[in-house]
Computed example of a mutant assay.
Amino acid sequence: MAVIPVALAGRGYEVVIEGGLLDRLPQAAAPFLKGYGNGRAVPFVADTNTRRLYAPAMERALAAHNLKAEWFIVEPGEDAKSWRGLEKLTDWLLALGVTRKDHVFALGGGVVGDLVGFACAITKRGCGFVQIPTTLLAQVDSSVGGKTAINTAAGKNLIGAFHQPSLVLIDPLVLATLPPREMRAGYAEVLKYGLLGDAAFFAWLEANGDKVLAREPAALEHAIATSIAMKARIVAEDERETADRRALLNLGHTFGHALEAETGFSQALLHGEAVALGMVLAARYSARRGEISQEDAARATAAIAAAGLPSEIAALGLSRDGAALVEHMRHDKKAEGTTLPFLLLKALGEAYVARDVDLADIAAFLDGELAA
């Protein structure tokens, strides 16, 4: 078991990592279940898959404490993170009579967590929520830090708010049902933590990544706990990304989001896969600028490829050129006026924000990668 504090002034919370937590939900989340019972059901939001897999055990655990769950179900996929999805969820919460003192439980991956977090940020001007992430990607990334959002026609995650959860419960045992591709996509974010700020952790992943992907308990818990501890430190230092510290968590995302946009935010390229390929491109572009060696760029690429993640942009078979991908980047929410910061590497384990990147050079670099 690991308990990691996210230290925010007056709004700190804990991330609890332990196998079997879902079966002990009433005990693990006891302070946040006050007000329920005596006819008031606990509001849960899940997608159809997570409800099917985990609801029966959780309902039995709640029933043993005279509690009942009320479910709001969304279809899997990014389409749930829409204006319509937000409207339906907030109407449901208001119909249940949720108050500012209540807590809503988000059971699922990043889509469910983002949608619930944003709904709770605006319902009654802010009610509480508890994250119960069921994918590796959500466990090590989106469930911690308070970024919540929906997608619009203009792009992904452009409408949202910072709204921190009250508690995050991570049960590594739920990953046993995660499809291998989803597991690999989540592992990309684990690799990100090593590349951006912990060379020793990156080296550990090079040696033990196969154990993490095989879901060996000790290796998996170590990878999750180390990733969350780093994110917790960064979020505590720069909660709203007003300085460059939290921006480091975006390593691989500027390139990755452009690739997601080009592939229509579809199953053709999962978010974690896009981030993995984005980190390859960031490492290679850093080498192009002479900031890391070609050998280090190759080492980063090899670690990503060894996990079965995309490592060559040419393999996507895109019909567009580098300039078209750069055009997607211009709509990135991190754009600042006419400039766009890029997360690059000074070393493996040391990322930084570069504000002197020529987008024309990025386009030429991507043309080379697309032709490789």
Rank of each mutant, 00 (worst) to 15 (best):
A7M: 11
A9T: 12
R11P: 04
G20Q: 06
F32A: 08
N38E: 14
N38V: 09
A41K: 09
F44K: 03
R60M: 02
L62I: 06
H65D: 15
L67V: 04
K68D: 13
F72G: 07
I73E: 15
E75G: 08
W83Q: 02
W83L: 13
E87T: 09
L89T: 03
L93Q: 07
L93I: 08
T99C: 06
H103G: 02
V104C: 03
V104R: 02
A106Y: 05
A106Q: 04
G108R: 04
G108A: 11
G113C: 04
L115E: 03
V116Y: 01
A119M: 00
K124S: 08
G128I: 13
V130D: 05
Q131F: 04
T135R: 11
L136C: 05
S142R: 09
G146V: 06
K147D: 14
T148H: 00
T152Y: 09
A154E: 13
G155S: 15
N157K: 12
L158W: 13
S166M: 13
T177Y: 11
P179M: 09
R181G: 12
R181K: 15
M183Q: 14
A188P: 02
A188F: 07
K192F: 09
K192T: 07
Y193F: 13
L195Q: 09
L196H: 14
F202S: 09
A203C: 05
W204E: 10
K211S: 03
R215D: 02
A218G: 07
T226V: 05
I228Q: 08
D244A: 12
L249S: 09
G252P: 07
H253K: 10
E260Q: 09
Q267W: 00
L269F: 08
A276Q: 02
G278Y: 01
G278Q: 06
V280L: 00
Y285S: 03
Y285Q: 00
S286L: 05
S286D: 08
S293P: 15
A297Q: 05
R299H: 06
A305G: 12
A315I: 00
L318Q: 10
E327T: 12
A347R: 07
L348K: 03
G349S: 08
E350W: 00
D358S: 13
L359G: 03
A363N: 10
L370K: 04
A372P: 01
